[in-house]
Design a protein around this nucleic acid. Structure first.
Lengths: 233, 233
DNA sequence: TGACGAATTTGACTTAGGTCAAGGCGAGAC
DNA sequence: GTCTCGCCTTGACCTAAGTCAAATTCGTCA
């Protein structure tokens, strides 16, 4: 397989590269398609290359011995997946699966490493990407360590709401069970927590469609790390 | 200030660089000394450069609104600190302080960025470092999310024990309160957890000196993510 | 040695959130 | 329509771990 469109070379990773290089990468990349839920790689698999999400999304997560999962991050179009394994050369340190119907470009490890050594611009782009990722992971650690579920949920909803351009109603991209994994909690707890926010007048839940009547209220929960009291007469 | 010895250029970051470049960096770097507990930078401070630990250690941590802290990692000699802020250009995303009496080299941001653009080898070294750091953070997330305190403690002790060459007695580098921060728990909980491990015959505590009579037992706790039962007749 | 302050331990209590086990509900199949 | 398989919610319960407060121990400086 080959010939990915410009989706690949428009990605941040290839920003500011000479057009000739971009054309070269378009030629070299192969394409892969995943159905929702399909596994891209599993922790421990030997890494042979780098993926770039073209459309859809890829969820990267850790799995506990007893099957619970913690999502590290969900990567969207333009974002590379599997860089760590590619750089440190060994196995993937986590699992990845399609969060939606997804297409990916695949770049072979040896060739990409060689290109990194020859193109400082490419290296700088990847460095910036990794730096952003580290900041992100540091925030996940902070959240897990300091914030209770209500605050993690509020933060997640606000971020999604802003990412979708502050629509009047926010639509969840997946099931609530998946959201629970993202937040590092159990579905039952998520359900109860949504109930609390709803009773506090901060959220309206109707299936996967959510209304955020009071974004500022949500934000103050995020700041505080907790939902203070359960107001209900 | 200037003139750091070869401690700087022996670090992984400068590995395989031409001798001339190394000499140049030795000249360019300034040196800074910190007493135990002294703050190197705080979250939100504007980042102007990159530090490399020469001796001692630097603890990087997040602070919760109410003062609790979660250590992301403690960096030792040869390791860079502050790369994320330097690369993403803004403020430090976390706090850092000396975990011991520490000396650092300081490299100015603009010059280092320029060098990155000119030296693919330097860029590759930094990429490898960041990749390692991401893997590390992913493990912290996994631990916080899946493992209870006993397992985090067991894992930490095993790692420290192995890092020190499996001595018969392990000496804690700091106070137990500091260890509690590392593990993301409260001192009281750490104390009780050590008691449990001791009662289970997996640990001998005498002040800051610890004996690990049964490393395999500890390892099985790490694997399981939990201390099964409290055996005591 | 003695005394002070910090570190640590212990006890009693509270609580967020996980687990197990029923239901309830909704969207597509028929 | 109504059956039915997944999701989702709810209730009852349990437990790890945080909090507050009161000892107790330890290190060290005079």
């Amino acid at each position: 397989m080959s010939a990915t469109s410009s989706e690949l070379t428009d990605s941040y990773l290839f920003r500011d590269l000479p057009a000739a290089d971009k054309a070269e990468w378009s030629r070299l990349a192969s394409r892969r398609t995943l159905a929702v839920g399909e596994r891209l790689f599993s922790q421990g698999d030997k890494a042979t290359g780098l993926f770039v999400v073209l459309s859809g999304g890829v969820r990267v997560f850790k799995l506990s011995p007893d099957g619970r999962r913690q999502v590290l991050h969900t990567f969207g179009p333009g974002e590379p997946v599997g860089e760590v394994a590619m750089l440190s050369g060994g196995a993937y340190p986590a699992n990845a699966e399609a969060a939606a119907s997804t297409t990916l470009a695949y770049l072979e490890r040896a060739r990409f490493l060689q290109a990194l050594g020859e193109s400082p611009q490419l290296a700088m782009n990847l460095l910036a990407t990794l730096a952003g990722r580290l900041k992100l992971f540091a925030e996940v650690i902070e959240d897990l360590s300091f914030k209770e579920v209500s605050a993690r949920l509020a933060g997640h909803l606000l971020a999604a709401w802003e990412a979708q351009g502050q629509p009047s109603r926010l639509t969840l991209p997946g099931t609530k069970g998946e959201l629970a994994d993202q937040l590092g909690t159990a579905p039952e707890t998520l359900s109860r927590t949504m109930g609390k926010l709803e009773r506090a007048g901060l959220l309206q839940v109707k299936g996967r469609s959510l209304g955020l009547p009071d974004p500022e209220g949500l934000r103050s929960i995020v700041e505080a790390g907790r939902l203070e009291r359960d107001k209900e007469p």
